[in-house]
Write a protein that binds this DNA or RNA. Structure first.
Lengths: 187, 187
DNA sequence: GTCTATACATTGATAGAC
DNA sequence: GTCTATCAATGTATAGAC
């Protein structure tokens, strides 16, 4: 079973390049050279660069949501939070890449409108999940949330996204351990 | 007194475009059209695009540091923190732009090495200042910091940078009010 | 499906007139 | 200082052979 189809390879490399260089920081030529094909072959699968971007973002969103939903709903809030933060930490330590959504959000004005909508969906889904867990933590008494859990969830997700960028900037995986303190210091 | 020299205009528009579209999301032609000159005139001031980027980052860094240092050192830690967070909030509400350093950090792999060094300097300077203020807060008893203030400072700055990106993504200035809660909830 | 060939616009950059 | 003119390289994209 070979999952290394051309289409798969294109998407893998394209996702990585967006995360490393931004949407405007790579070309079909870069992709073609990396894979060892011609640019016209990429156009066969993704006629326009926006088609490629759309496919990447959809796949990323679906996989990330699946990973979140794989966190056992029966767990306590603080364990869920640790698992969630660990997802970010491991994603970074394995790839040294920031979040795809954060990479695209930086170049926002240069992206098509439908991508912006998808990014909002990605951010919103994460914030919703986090808010739900924080609320559970308050109910369970394991988390001390002074204000609105919705706002706390926003701040927490922003801190996670920002920490990934900083960890890469300093090429310092150790910084990803700060994430735990950042997210869980209110316990 | 006319500060709207060509050089100034170039730098202003270029900084804005980096913050909106990323370093690879605009061209000398874009700049020339915006200002009403020819691309060769831009090359007169900034022979290479990297020269332009360097000048912008240096100016941004200097101005931001000056703004931080303008915060009265005699103030209490929590007032200093509020002033610092308010700098971010107002910067966003006036311009709807994210931090220049955060915009560049996203496209990191496509930037020259000396720019990476400057970004590290910018992040480090902010984290240092924050850590110092947090330590003051602990001494004064106005802040309850469970762990290392250095780590807390990193998380706080990451949260600020991330919140700016989210506020822009959702075109929601209200989110910048979350910053206060995010940064000061440990009071 | 992948290629060759090609089109056509854009990009960063330079030389030299004014 | 700003312009015209020009450049080679790169960018996205298409047509059609195999």
């Amino acid at each position: 079973m070979n999952t290394e189809t051309t289409r798969t390879q294109i998407m893998q490399h394209a996702q990585r390049l967006v995360q490393e260089r931004g949407y405007n920081g790579f070309s079909y030529r870069d992709l073609a050279t990396l894979i060892g094909i011609k640019t016209s072959s990429i156009h066969y699968y993704f006629p326009q660069k926006e088609d490629l971007l759309l496919a990447i973002v959809q796949q990323y969103h679906a996989r990330w949501l699946a990973a979140i939903q794989a966190i056992d709903t029966g767990l306590s809030a603080d364990v869920k939070l640790r698992a969630y933060v660990d997802m970010h930490r491991q994603a970074f330590c394995n790839t040294e890449r920031i979040c795809l959504a954060a990479a695209l959000a930086a170049d926002l004005a240069s992206l098509p409108a439908d991508i912006r909508k998808m990014l909002q969906g990605f951010y919103g889904a994460n914030e919703d999940w986090l808010a739900q867990v924080l609320e559970q933590g308050v109910r369970e008494g394991s988390l001390d949330m002074p204000g609105d859990v919705r706002i706390a969830a926003r701040s927490m997700f922003a801190a996670l996204q920002g920490s990934l960028a900083t960890a890469r900037l300093f090429n310092d995986s150790e910084r990803m351990n700060d994430l735990l303190q950042a997210a869980l210091s209110r316990q």
